[in-house]
Amino acid sequence: MHYTFQWRVAFNALPDMLWGALVTLEVAVLSMVLGVFFAVVLALGSSSQYRAFRGAAATWVELARNTPALFQIYMAYFGLGSIGIQLDSFPALLAGITFNNAGYLAETFRGGLRAVPPTQMRAARSLGMGPVQAFRLIVLPQMFRVVFYPMTNQMVWAILMTSLGVIVGLNNDLTGVTQDLNVKSFRTFEFFAVAAVIYYLIAKLVTLSARLMAYRLFRY
């Protein structure tokens, strides 16, 4: 083995990689916010009395959960482009991860809604709340308490999925920056080892932050 490690090259590029990590977090957070919104809609649609809503929700969930995330991103970037809807790398990656997040979270939210006793809605209505107000103020907070930790796991998964952006030309996230640095210096092991450590630390930071939030929000 004649490979000579040059860690100084990777450490000197650390500021650029950390800026890329911020872009990674931006995509992950936006995809979670949008994913949670669509997941709530899908969870309600799957319990709707209308067959069309149930079918649309089931189709989304089945496609998101049973096809590779890579294909979903490809469809957002190349598939929509073939029918005249052109998306740049960032929105295509965001759309693909959002689609995936919503599909996985929808089933989690559906279980969370079932965990909230129906008497909660009836009690809220008896106090004079409308159905939308009761759902927003009474049912949703209890559901989010049930699904909080699965949401944390999905957030970590969303962070890791952002690395797929490099295959649709995104070059300013952590993986894209790392790949550009690797092409210029051919120090593959050093750069990707440092990038892996950054991904690991981000995931651990998200998990620790979620535990602290859970302690503050759900200790009573």
Score class of each variant (00 low, 15 high):
Y74A: 08
M17L: 14
E62V: 00
S31D: 05
L25M: 15
L34C: 09
F71E: 10
A58H: 07
L44V: 05
L22M: 13
L22R: 05
S48G: 14
A56C: 03
V61I: 15
S31I: 05
R51I: 08
V40F: 00
V40M: 07
T59N: 08
V33H: 01
A43S: 10
V29G: 09
A64C: 13
V27T: 10
A43H: 02
V23D: 14
T59C: 08
A76K: 03
A57K: 14
A58V: 02
Q72M: 09
L30R: 08
Y74K: 11
G20T: 12
S46F: 00
A57D: 14
G20D: 08
R54L: 13
G35I: 01
Y74W: 13
V27K: 00
E62G: 02
F38H: 08
L63D: 12
V23R: 15
M17R: 09
A69V: 15
V41E: 03
A69D: 13
F71L: 15
G20V: 14
Q72A: 14
R51N: 11
P68V: 13
L18Q: 07
P68W: 10
F53Y: 09
V33G: 06
L63R: 10
L42R: 05
L22P: 06
F53W: 12
T67K: 09
T59D: 10
V33P: 03
L63K: 06
M32H: 02
S31F: 01
T24L: 06
L30A: 13
W19L: 15
A28Y: 00
F71G: 03
V41A: 10
V36G: 06
L30D: 04
A43F: 00
L25Q: 12
V36N: 13
V41D: 07
M17T: 09
A43G: 07
V40I: 13
V27A: 03
L18N: 05
W19M: 14
R54K: 15
W60N: 10
E62K: 06
V41G: 05
A64R: 12
L70K: 05
L18K: 11
F53N: 07
V36M: 11
L44Y: 03
F38A: 08
I73S: 12
G20A: 12
L22I: 14
E26I: 01
S48A: 14
A43N: 02
F38S: 01
A52P: 04
A76M: 15
V36Y: 00
A52E: 10
Q49E: 04
F37D: 04
G35P: 07
S47M: 05
N66L: 11
S47G: 06
A43L: 03
V29H: 03
T59F: 08
S47W: 00
D16V: 02
Y50Q: 15
G55H: 04
